Simulated assay, not measured.
Amino acid sequence: MDSIQDGPHARAASNAGAAVPYFCQWESAHLAGAIIRGELDLKDDPAWADSGAADVDEYARWASHVCGMACLKMVLAARTGRVHPTLALARASLPYGAYTVDGDEIKGMIYAPFVRYVEEVHGLRARVHVDLATAALPALLDEAEFFMASVHPSIRWPDQPPPKKGGHLVLVTRASADEIVFHNPSGEPAVDGRPGTQADARLAPAVFDRYFAGRGVAILRG
């Protein structure tokens, strides 16, 4: 979930040969398909404790709202080799206003406070982008190391047209005139020889554009 408002249990899916580690926003990446289809309740995720949640109820409350923190977790793992628990990242962002929490309702991730958080706490240089064309991503990825792109979550099923654009964050790692390469925190795992849509998902720019809302957060180099 994202917002432009200002204000064995698999911890990581297989990502052989990729420079950027992959992490799912749900702790059991191999069970993501069952979670997406409603066949597995989040309270039954066997690896929930790895999230850093205080208890399973906190995990179930937050796990479907932390796509942005899963992207940050991947960036930090790639940069430093350290793996931060996803909910620990989310919890640390709250004093900056990266999420709005009202009772059981969680809204976020809100870009400007998130940028302040990652700069002050993690030493990352980040920049918010809006009104960004998909065709501009290759040039952006020449300047930035990563781009957290707002897409519709149904990008996990690229043969299906989305009802709208945006609402979910993926981590774009490479972009060219021919393809956009990204890690999707809520992608489907590979099953029965069918390729998954979690790590190093690849789409033609025209297909990516169907889901892309033209906004996100660039993580700059250095």
Rank of each mutant, 00 (worst) to 15 (best):
D2M: 09
D2I: 14
S3R: 01
Q5S: 11
Q5T: 06
G7L: 13
P8Q: 07
H9E: 09
H9A: 13
H9G: 13
R11K: 07
S14I: 08
N15S: 13
A16C: 05
A18P: 00
A19I: 12
A19V: 14
E27I: 10
S28M: 02
A29I: 02
A32S: 12
A34K: 09
A34W: 00
I35W: 04
R37D: 14
R37L: 00
G38Q: 03
D41C: 01
L42V: 03
K43R: 15
K43I: 10
D44K: 10
D45L: 10
P46I: 06
A47M: 00
W48T: 10
A49S: 09
A49F: 06
D50M: 11
G52H: 06
V56T: 15
D57F: 09
D57T: 14
E58S: 03
A63R: 05
H65R: 13
H65L: 07
G68T: 10
C71L: 00
L72G: 03
K73S: 05
M74T: 03
R79H: 09
G81A: 05
H84G: 02
H84Q: 13
T86I: 15
A88W: 09
L89A: 01
A90S: 07
A90C: 08
A92I: 01
S93A: 15
G97H: 05
G97R: 03
Y99I: 04
G103C: 02
G103I: 05
D104C: 00
D104H: 02
M109H: 06
M109N: 05
I110G: 11
A112K: 15
P113F: 01
V115K: 01
V115A: 06
R116Q: 08
Y117V: 04
E120F: 02
E120S: 08
V121Q: 14
H122T: 08
H122K: 04
R125F: 03
H129W: 10
L132C: 12
A133H: 07
T134D: 08
P138C: 10
A139M: 08
A139C: 09
D142E: 15
E143S: 15
E143Y: 11
A144Q: 14
E145I: 09
F147R: 07
A149H: 04
S150E: 09
S150P: 06
S150Q: 05
S154M: 15
S154T: 12
R156I: 08
W157H: 13
D159C: 13
P163I: 11
P163C: 03
G167I: 00
L169S: 10
L169P: 05
V172A: 07
V172L: 11
R174C: 08
A177K: 12
E179N: 01
I180R: 01
F182M: 11
P185F: 05
S186I: 09
S186N: 14
G187Q: 03
V191M: 08
D192S: 14
G196I: 04
G196N: 04
Q198N: 07
A199R: 04
A201R: 07
L203M: 12
A204V: 06
A206N: 11
V207H: 14
F208N: 14
D209Q: 09
R210S: 02
A213C: 06
V217S: 03
V217I: 15
A218K: 09
L220T: 13
R221D: 12
R221A: 13
G222R: 15
